[in-house]
Computed example of a mutant assay.
Amino acid sequence: MTIFDKEAKSYDSWYDTKLGNFVDKVERKCAFDLFLPFKGMKVLDIGCGTGNYSIRLAEKGCEVIGIDISDEMLEIARDKAREKNLDIKFYNMDVYNLNFEDENFDGVFSMAAFEFIKYTKKALDEIFRVAKTDGQVLIGTINKDSAWGELYMSNDFKENSVFKYADFKTKEDFNNIFPDNIVDINECLFIPPSIKPQDISVEKEEELSHSKRGGFICVLWKK
């Protein structure tokens, strides 16, 4: 059992809240403004959790393999894919030891998993190994240098959540890894975690983008 197994059944309930739903939308836009899937694209989804992005990629016509270290998360992902009649393969696998041949994937995609990956360069070395030449590599993660990062790193929050095991990153942390291959780095989630429900809006997100650091960053490399 991993630390994430006990989170599996309640994980998706966050997206049913007004804030969770909005966060999901802005993070998804941030990711797909950079990562450009195409029909038949072979994609590895790292830290796939309950399969939300694996399913979105498959619905865009991609051939998807999702990996995670939580069997409970993976079982939920399989159930959700079956309900949608999507042929997605899910495996329990560690990012540091990917059981795939070199240059196997047109794209490697990871959203909200690198918060829990301590050795970023080691993980990206393995990711780049399995990505094809000219393949896309997209990492989306909480920005340590933001109001959201401050919340997740606060003692009270860490005490009662899996974020006690997190290792948060900044844009600068990624700038030094395969710098010649970086295509772009985008930010989103400028609204703070303390925002009132009635203030959650695209307009507020846009307004704050001019003065606040984004709570979530997406980095795109091209191998």
Score class of each variant (00 low, 15 high):
L138E: 07
A123K: 09
S194H: 03
I200D: 01
N160C: 10
S70W: 00
K80G: 01
K29M: 14
M111C: 11
L86R: 03
A77D: 00
R28E: 12
F157Y: 15
R213H: 11
I67M: 01
D12R: 03
D180I: 14
I182Y: 06
P37A: 05
G140Y: 13
N97A: 13
Y96H: 11
F216K: 05
L36A: 11
G40T: 05
I55E: 00
M93Q: 10
L208Y: 07
F163W: 15
T133L: 09
R78G: 01
Y53S: 03
D12H: 05
R78E: 08
E72Q: 03
D5E: 02
S211Y: 15
R56G: 04
I69D: 02
I88C: 01
K9M: 10
K42Q: 07
D12G: 05
F22M: 01
Q136T: 04
L44I: 05
K60G: 04
G61Y: 07
G51W: 00
I139G: 09
N92C: 09
W148P: 06
K6F: 07
Y53C: 02
T50W: 02
I3M: 15
F157E: 13
D184I: 06
S161K: 12
K18V: 15
I191R: 03
E59Q: 15
N104R: 14
K25L: 06
F216C: 05
F105Q: 12
D94A: 09
S154C: 14
N104Y: 13
N143H: 15
L34I: 04
E59T: 07
F114Q: 11
D134F: 12
N160Y: 13
L208E: 05
Y119M: 14
E206R: 13
L44A: 07
L208Q: 05
D184W: 07
Y152W: 14
F22T: 00
H210R: 14
G215N: 14
I185T: 03
F128L: 15
M93S: 09
V162K: 12
G61H: 05
I88A: 00
T17H: 05
H210F: 14
A131D: 13
E63F: 10
S10Y: 12
G66Q: 01
D180F: 14
L57T: 02
A31C: 12
F190C: 01
E75I: 00
D68P: 00
F35G: 02
C30E: 08
G214I: 03
I142R: 10
